[in-house]
Simulated scan of single mutants.
Amino acid sequence: MLKKFLLSTAVSLALTACATSPTGRSQFIYMSDNQVDQMGLQSFSDMKSKNPITQNPRYSQFASCVAQAITQQTGGQWEVVVFEDETLNAFALPGNKIGVHTGLINLVDNQDQLAAVIGHEVGHVLARHSNERLSQETAVSTGLSMVQAVSQPQTALGQTALGLLGVGAQYGVILPFSRVHETEADTIGVDLMAKAGFDPRQSVNLWLKMDKAAQGGQPIEFMSTHPSHGSRIENLNQHMNQALQMQQQARNNGRQPHCSK
């Protein structure tokens, strides 16, 4: 009787937790989006209180201009903050939060290259990758404690929770997204930037610049947890014709961003 009950419970859980990503991939999503959003909001608030925010208005305006063009394609209100940090990094969190490091802004040549990174990170949020990873990595019985742990990032559990969100670098732990998640975020991201009117071909140039910077010994948190530039560029090139068609349609509809660095 107990075995039948457990089996029935497991089947019920699997059915209720079944979801589909924007690219059509099957996902296991158990935690509520509201829970994960609250974790993202808490961690972002904590970052802003503990990490310096740039006082350079040009950096803030540039990042906000690019991010707003991207997020107009997703809907919702997104907060964008530029952190004074020379590492080449950017991130997006559940709860519609975007962080960009000054080091990344200094690296990119133009708006399109920054759009490639921001589009990729927003892609993680749209595909609910944090929720998927939290659902897979945490048992139902510890879900609540994980949510609470975000408010205590110095604890071991808090570090794990932040790492699962994808923002654990500030606390000494990074739990990278899977290769599947990264490839999916690349596809979603290049489509987002193209729909916003950015040049998707610049995404390839951006990853080449990131790889060159890594070989030069620059600290790149972003690349340390992502696929090699070769496989990423191959995947992007396979999708490029479709992305270019999206960009042309966006331009025909008057979407042509003008974000000055």
Rank of each mutant, 00 (worst) to 15 (best):
M1H: 14
L7D: 14
T9P: 00
L15D: 02
T16N: 04
A17M: 06
G24D: 02
Q27P: 02
I29Q: 11
N34H: 11
Q35S: 15
Q42C: 13
F44A: 09
S45D: 13
S45L: 06
M47S: 07
K48V: 05
N51I: 05
N51M: 12
N51S: 07
T54R: 10
T74H: 09
G75K: 09
G76T: 14
Q77L: 07
Q77W: 01
Q77K: 12
W78H: 13
F83D: 07
F83A: 05
N89C: 05
F91T: 01
G99H: 07
G103V: 12
I105D: 01
D109C: 01
D112F: 02
Q113W: 09
I118C: 04
G119K: 09
L126P: 05
A127R: 04
H129W: 02
E132R: 08
L134F: 11
L144C: 00
V150G: 04
Q152I: 00
L157W: 00
T160R: 14
G166W: 01
V167N: 03
Q170D: 14
G172P: 13
I174P: 01
F177T: 04
S178M: 03
H181F: 06
E184I: 07
I188H: 07
D191I: 00
M193G: 08
A194P: 05
G197Y: 07
P200F: 08
R201S: 15
S203M: 13
S203F: 14
V204I: 15
L206D: 10
A214T: 14
Q215S: 15
G216W: 12
G217K: 11
P219L: 09
G230H: 09
I233N: 14
M240L: 15
N241L: 09
N252A: 15
N253S: 06
K261C: 01
